[in-house]
Design a protein around this nucleic acid. Structure first.
Length: 290
DNA sequence: CACACGTGGTC
DNA sequence: TGACCAAGTGT
């Protein structure tokens, strides 16, 4: 049976402190929610806000996006990062247009079949856009439950079966409350129970928190390796893509050569970007967005 | 299952 | 100042 001593304070806190985000408004379409979820993968809300607004303005429906070349999506993605998500969102729009009459599906399985939609995003869209009862397990929820229930500072690198079962037990019985619970726990993790410097004085369940009760023991799991950046292929790819985004049309190899020094790596990344579908090799020494 | 995949802000 | 972090997915 779901734990009402946890539900009530969290739901009350959410009612009072929830941010007014465009994709949470009553008039937000399922498409708006889906777009927001793809953009929010590994990306902070503040950076998503303007891109999401422009995207929905330009492409109010999946069909509108599906009708455009995928390169337009890549360009509109701007500097959100992980531009393959733009590819996937465009591909999802095509799939929705072709297989679902242009309507974002409300079924978890159908959502999961869309490009760029994994277990988390499928549950999130079904829950937030359609009010369905699902286990919505993102990094925020994992951290909050891991602390309050599990007594650990940070979740493990990957989701465990026990963790998923624990989260499932806490989901309220009815659809509407379950959907609010999901977004409320996420919001608590985003605003109060943050990864670094949690504001426990503001937490509605601080008095029930196992981590707090244990005296805030430090993380003792396997080391979480920091992501390298300088000199990596990712940095190189980013530089290359920036050249294409900032250009009006196709660019010459010389422009790309100037964007990244080490030639072998530059050529390797260029080939990988073409293989990924983020760039097309339109002519000898000429590249363009797809 | 570990790793690749962008970007920029924060403490 | 640099390490860590932000609503994960695909392979």
């Amino acid at each position: 049976m779901p734990d009402s001593t946890l539900h009530e304070p969290v739901l009350d806190w959410y009612d009072e402190h929830a941010r007014d985000l465009p994709w949470r408004r009553p008039e937000a379409s399922p498409w708006s929610v889906l777009v927001s979820e793809l953009m929010l993968q590994q990306t902070p809300v503040v950076r998503v806000l303007p891109v999401h607004a422009a995207w929905l303005e330009r492409w109010p429906t999946p069909a509108a996006l599906a009708a455009e070349p995928v390169g337009e999506a890549v360009r509109a993605w701007g500097r959100l990062g992980y531009p393959r998500r733009a590819l996937r969102l465009h591909a999802a729009a095509v799939a929705i247009t072709e297989r679902h009459d242009g309507l974002v599906p409300d079924d978890h399985g159908a959502l999961l079949a869309l490009p760029g939609v994994g277990d988390y995003t499928a549950a999130a869209v079904a829950s937030f856009a359609f009010g369905r009862r699902h286990v919505v397990l993102d990094t925020n929820v994992r951290r909050v439950l891991g602390r309050v229930v599990g007594g650990a500072e940070h979740p493990r690198p990957s989701v465990t079966k026990a963790e998923r079962e624990e989260a499932a037990l806490l989901v309220p019985d009815d659809d509407a409350t379950a959907a609010t619970w999901a977004v409320a726990v996420m919001e608590l993790g985003a605003l109060v129970c943050t990864a670094a410097g949690p504001r426990c004085e503001e937490c509605p369940v601080a008095d029930q928190c196992a981590w707090r009760a244990a005296g805030y023991p430090a993380y003792d799991g396997p080391a979480r390796r920091a992501q390298a950046w300088d000199g990596t292929d990712r940095q190189c790819r980013g530089r290359l893509m920036a050249v294409l985004r900032d250009a009006d049309g196709p660019v010459r190899r010389s422009a790309l050569d100037a964007a990244w020094g080490p030639e072998a790596q530059r050529l390797r990344c260029l080939a990988a970007l073409v293989a990924d579908g983020l760039l097309v090799h339109v002519a000898e020494d000429v590249y363009a967005l797809p």
